[in-house]
Structure formats: C-alpha cells, structure tokens
Amino acid sequence: MITAGIDIGSISTKAAVIADSKLLGAKVIFTGYNAEQAGKTVYEDLLQELHLQPSAIQKTVATGYGRNSVKFADKTLTEIICHAAGAHFLNPPVRSIIDIGGQDSKAIVVDVNGNVGNFVMNDKCAAGTGRFLEVMARALEVDLENLGDLSLQADHPSKISSLCTVFAESEVISLIAKGENRANIIAGIHESIASRVFSMANRVGIVPPVVMTGGVAKNIGFVKALEKKLGITPTVSKYAQVNGAIGAADLAAGLK
C-alpha cells in the first residue's frame, strides 16, 4: 500500500510517501502565502521525483496549520498525533518527542505503540519557536543555517532574559550595540529557547529515549543547549523536519 502525508507548517510545507511501511521519499518547500498551492506543489513535485502517478497513492493524510486547505486529503490530523506516529515509525523505541516548528513547540509522551499519552504545547507567544530564530538570525545578519555552528564557538553565552520575541529582539540589538560577539549572543538565544522547552518537557513528564523533530532540530547549537538543560541526549533523525509528514503518511496507511 502506498500512502502520502502532507504537513503544511507556518514556514515550510513537507510531503512524504510511504510504501508498505518503508519511506520512499520526502520533500520540503517554503509555504509562502498560499498554503493550498504549497500543499499541491510539494505533493506533485515529490511524486514526480519518485516517478509515481497520483493514482498510485491510495490514501493521503494532511496535518499542520494548513491541514484543512489540502482538498485532496482523505483525512486531516493534528501535528501532535502525526509527530508521535512519525517518530515511532522512524525509531520505534521512542517514548518522548520534542518538536519545534515555525510557530509551535511541543513536548509529547507516547506509549510503546506510538499512541499519544500526553502532550503540552507552547503558550501563545512565538518565543521558543523557529520563527523566533528567524527573527534573531535577521537581527544578527546570520544565515539561519549557520546559527548552530556559530553558537558552538561561544565562550560565554549571553543572558537573553526576555521570553517575548519582539522584546528579545530589542535585547539582542542592544547586545550587538554593546559589542557582544555573535557566537555568545546566538548561544544565549539557544539557551533561552531551551529553558522554555525544558519547562514544557517537565510539565508533560518526558521519559527517554527522546527524539527531537521539526525544522529547529537541524540547528546543532540548539540541540546541544537542550541536551545540557534536559540532561538527556535527544536523537535527531535526518528526517527530523519531515517527521510530521512521515507520521501523516504512516497514519494514512491505517485509514479504513
């Protein structure tokens, strides 16, 4: 059975295709203004890359903030269930998932079957999300992709006390004005996000093995900061960013 999962997030849109419990491929594009179009594009491009006809896909599940704009989906599910399923699919022993996407961060505890036991999502504020890092990268004139490596060079991470994105940005700007080096500022930003995620993880009661998913998992500096705070080393799959789409495709296989 071949199934597809589409995850339309606030920043990027992801698609994955699974055939008989094996991942055939996955793809990421920017969501942009038109979520519906992004869902279609990523799906069609991926099928083309995999040399599959749309008729070959038996079921499709859509997830993410734009889930309801995927008209051709058989079902929509939230990211919570999909990330749990995706992490379980890639790494069956997993018991906890920390997902940090564009505008949400969440901590999820799953049972041995990958069913969600409990979850906590960030409160309304955008601090502690991918968008927060984007804003900071812009203020620091650093490419988003380089934040992680740069922060590893820090010798004395700055204290970013504010938990609000807008105020934290002003704080970063004043640190720049004071001549603080970039590596320390970035490391400070990572620590401030890690501290927020840490309290969420405690609230939900995470247990190892822990995996980290979502686009922010690609940031090695943040993963290290989180590891330090949690005292647990999270596993990061190379499919971390498309984990939700993989979970959606996996759940699609279970649809009747």
Binding site: Y65, T78, I80, I81, N115, V116, F119, M121
Partner: peptide
C-alpha cells in the same frame, strides 16, 4: 487557530485512548 489545533489534538488523544 492555536486553540483549534490544541482542541483537535486533545480530541485525537481522547479518541485514541
């Protein structure tokens, strides 16, 4: 939309259980 996602996810958990 944030509240909606949380309610949907919560209901999925209850249905799963």
């Amino acid at each position: 939309s944030q509240v909606e996602t949380r309610i949907d996810a919560f209901m999925e958990v209850i249905k799963q259980r």
